[in-house]
Amino acid sequence: MDEEYDVIVLGTGLTECILSGIMSVNGKKVLHMDRNPYYGGESSSITPLEELYKRFQLLEGPPESMGRGRDWNVDLIPKFLMANGQLVKMLLYTEVTRYLDFKVVEGSFVYKGGKIYKVPSTETEALASNLMGMFEKRRFRKFLVFVANFDENDPKTFEGVDPQTTSMRDVYRKFDLGQDVIDFTGHALALYRTDDYLDQPCLETVNRIKLYSESLARYGKSPYLYPLYGLGELPQGFARLSAIYGGTYMLNKPVDDIIMENGKVVGVKSEGEVARCKQLICDPSYIPDRVRKAGQVIRIICILSHPIKNTNDANSCQIIIPQNQVNRKSDIYVCMISYAHNVAAQGKYIAIASTTVETTDPEKEVEPALELLEPIDQKFVAISDLYEPIDDGCESQVFCSCSYDATTHFETTCNDIKDIYKRMAGTAFDFENMKRKQNDVFGEAEQ
């Protein structure tokens, strides 16, 4: 370990593993360490099931009705991949897709007046949907046509809207959309967690709705994908990429100290040895004095023996409960997957309800979601602090990732990755940087 590296990475969460992969592909010498004996950090999948019970201090362990412990891979952080989103792009560019198998999530649902409705995925579904009345549908269709044709580089498509100054509230007004449709559009399509976006320039919202539609167009059922064997497969896929390009991995490796000289990182000390480096990437748990708390998320993992009611017996789905429907500031989400994804025993389902904490009784906040899941065989409640770095790391060369937020997709995580890359490399992130180099010394032969 007593060696000189360009970059040392602490923690094998998804953000850290993707950055480690990119740095290795770009010719950097990388050492990647984790104090845990497993990959994934906060974003790991726990197996066998006995391990999950232990982690949540349920000492009696799983009953026999849960089947074989080894058949379970339970995500600690519930997220899906947008089919046309940035993480899929990263997987394709790096060819990490060859280590993973994905399934399309069967449906996306939205909560309205105590019931759940399928988010329409085709024009026919939209016309048949009970989510809105006849005239509302016509106006909504006009709005969707506007979004589909919108091109930020072609003012002819703006229809009198200025993407940089017109607020989204004004765009909704222009198409005369009612409150329910606005809730549905902002939260189930643009996937905002709160209503803060309404008074911001509309460009980002329009682009988010386009991303949803384009992702949906790829597979038809929903815009989301999920990897077989759980999300823990993602960091491992990128760790393989890093290793192929010469990255060194050490799990179960305690970090005793991060060594600084004149305010700059110069190395990491572990078990009496020092590895030197020019730059350091880590998750917040490794540098508690360089991060601040930015809120909390509650996630309740529920094991069920039945599909969720009114989802047409889907073996995977997402449910969004827009905040307006339950008098909150932030949406509540449910991600459900099952034995069909090799993450649970035969006939079992895993539904994870999550939201940003707003009160001193977080469990009560998630109740509307839990009511949709009854009866629940077993619950595991996790309340996590969200951390963000206190500075950009440019001076110390210590670059810290943000905690995983309450969103049900990876777009915010990818933004964090691109942002850290830019601060480390001094140049904007470009997907081309992730391409495997042809015929290089570490390149794998085609399968």
Rank of each mutant, 00 (worst) to 15 (best):
S43T: 07
H32P: 03
T356P: 10
N84D: 10
Y5T: 04
D257S: 15
K379I: 11
Y349I: 14
G186L: 10
Q279C: 12
C302H: 12
G160K: 12
V104G: 02
S270W: 01
K28D: 14
D2M: 05
L304R: 02
F140C: 01
I319T: 00
M434L: 13
A353W: 01
G237S: 10
F238R: 02
C335L: 15
D151G: 05
C400R: 04
I259S: 03
G160W: 05
E446G: 10
R35Q: 08
E136G: 11
L10M: 01
P48T: 00
F150H: 11
L370F: 09
S222L: 02
D180F: 14
A126R: 04
K79Q: 04
M66T: 08
G67S: 07
C394V: 03
K112T: 05
V110P: 15
Y117V: 03
T407A: 09
K103I: 09
G40A: 05
S401K: 03
R292L: 09
A294S: 11
T360N: 14
C317T: 02
N207D: 06
G393A: 12
D170C: 14
I321V: 08
K418Q: 09
T12G: 13
P227W: 15
K112G: 03
E273K: 08
G85V: 02
R35M: 08
N36G: 14
Y333L: 07
G267R: 02
D385Y: 04
F158S: 08
G347Q: 12
E374P: 00
I376T: 07
G13R: 01
S401G: 02
G230N: 15
V171A: 09
E365G: 04
N130Y: 10
E444Q: 00
R290C: 06
P254R: 05
K142D: 06
Q325K: 00
K115Q: 03
V25M: 07
S45Y: 00
E95D: 07
S396V: 09
V274M: 12
L100V: 14
Y39C: 04
Q296N: 08
Y99T: 13
F442H: 15
R436V: 07
E16K: 01
G393C: 04
D392E: 12
A353L: 14
C317L: 08
S222I: 01
D196G: 09
P62R: 09
T427V: 06
E4D: 09
I116S: 07
D430H: 00
E432R: 14
N439L: 13
Y219D: 06
V297S: 15
P163H: 00
I8S: 02
M336R: 02
G85N: 00
F102Y: 04
K269R: 12
A425S: 08
F135M: 15
F399Y: 13
S242D: 12
Y333S: 13
V255D: 15
F143P: 03
V145L: 12
F399L: 07
I116R: 01
D154Y: 04
T97I: 07
P368R: 02
R193C: 09
M424R: 03
Y117W: 13
Q179T: 14
K29N: 08
D289G: 10
V381G: 06
L225S: 02
T412M: 06
P288K: 02
S45V: 03
N36K: 05
P375D: 02
L100Q: 11
N433G: 12
G246W: 01
A353F: 02
T412C: 15
H187L: 06
V274T: 15
E388K: 06
